[in-house]
Amino acid sequence: MRRIALFIGTNLAVLLLLSIVCHLFGIDRMAAARGYGGMTGLLVYAAVFGMGGAFISLAMSKMIAKWSTHARVITQPQNETERWLVDTVRRHAQNAGIGMPEVAIYEAPEMNAFATGMTRNSALVAVSSGLLQQMDREQVGAVLGHEIGHVANGDMVTLTLIQGVLNTLVILAARIVGQLVDSWLSGGRNDNRGGGGIGYFVVVMVLQVVFGLFASIIVAAFSRWREFRADTAGAQFAGRGAMISALQRLKGNHGESTLPQTIAAFGISGPLTDGLKRLFMSHPPLDERIAALQNAS
């Protein structure tokens, strides 16, 4: 539950922080005073902050991933395992028709891997030391195929676009409703040229939390769907049996993942939960993923 709360909180914190900064520095009021208070201006304002924040995060994703996991990029393989790892990623990348990603290893006890990057031709694929130690090469090759599938499918960019559009809609909807409520509270005397009163500010803050929760559900749903697609890619590049075997081996993971929350959704597996909390899961259950591969024609 802690990781789910952090996942939701990260998205909401960005929106709340932007709103507070805009309010404190009078950006809302300046925009309204200059005639940007109409629907078109509000939409542009929401898009700049909603899409801008998402793409800034994407542009920094590789740097943040390397820094937060202390991943060591393999520039010159130091042993046979590293040479095999780089060669396998290169082969999968060539088969997928994408540029050669950076390949890295990070120290972690659990079996995990992730891919991130701004474009399909400038990605990073990283594997944990635990994955290399606890899986055979056939299984590791399938995991690498899964991660290359994410890159080839453009999942990082698509996820960013979805998050950006939803952030924009959250900002837009919260302010429209906030203006209506503030106008009602003021008896229609507030024309919003001053940026709205306290009622407007409170309503916007609350609604961004509420709407942000619904946005997180949509993002999580797409994240789960893309895992099935990446599994299919892993089966294509390394063989269906190898991909199924790798997913079955992943069931041997115990405890919380050590991946930082900023990139946890990019890992090959995620935490399981039940009830309403399933709506916020970034990964579908491993049993469902295995069944999907077994039933694929």
Rank of each mutant, 00 (worst) to 15 (best):
M1S: 15
M1T: 12
I8P: 03
N11D: 12
N11V: 05
L16N: 12
L18I: 15
G26R: 09
D28L: 12
A33S: 13
R34Y: 15
R34Q: 14
G35D: 12
G35F: 08
G37T: 10
G38R: 11
M39E: 05
G41E: 06
G41R: 08
L42H: 04
L42T: 09
L43R: 06
L43E: 06
V44N: 03
Y45I: 10
A47N: 08
M51N: 07
M51E: 06
G52V: 07
A54N: 09
M60A: 10
S61E: 05
S61G: 03
K62W: 00
I64A: 14
A65L: 05
T69P: 01
H70G: 08
R72L: 13
I74W: 00
T75N: 14
Q76P: 10
Q78W: 12
N79T: 02
T81W: 14
V86N: 05
T88K: 03
T88Q: 13
V89W: 04
V89S: 02
H92L: 13
A96N: 00
I98M: 09
I105P: 00
Y106W: 08
E107H: 11
A108M: 07
E110R: 12
M111T: 02
M111L: 01
N112F: 02
N112T: 06
A113Y: 00
F114E: 01
F114R: 03
A115I: 03
T116Y: 07
G117C: 09
M118S: 07
R120L: 07
S128R: 03
G130Y: 08
L132P: 00
L132S: 05
Q134K: 15
Q139T: 00
G141R: 07
G149M: 06
V151E: 03
D155T: 05
V157A: 11
T158A: 06
L159C: 11
L159G: 12
T160L: 00
T160S: 06
L166F: 04
T168I: 07
I176M: 11
L180S: 13
L185F: 08
R189H: 05
N190H: 11
G195K: 06
G196C: 03
G199M: 08
V202S: 05
V202W: 08
M205A: 15
M205I: 11
V206G: 05
L207D: 07
L207F: 06
L207E: 04
Q208D: 08
V209N: 05
V210F: 12
F211V: 01
F211E: 07
L213A: 09
F214I: 11
I218T: 12
A220C: 04
A220D: 01
W225D: 11
R226F: 00
E227G: 01
F228C: 11
D231I: 02
A238Y: 02
G241P: 05
I244F: 01
I244T: 09
S245C: 10
A246V: 00
G252E: 13
E256P: 03
E256I: 08
S257E: 05
I268Q: 03
S269G: 09
S269A: 13
G270C: 14
T273E: 02
T273R: 04
G275K: 13
L276K: 04
R278N: 14
L279C: 15
L279P: 01
L279S: 15
F280I: 01
F280W: 06
S282N: 15
P284R: 06
P285S: 09
Q294S: 11
N295F: 03
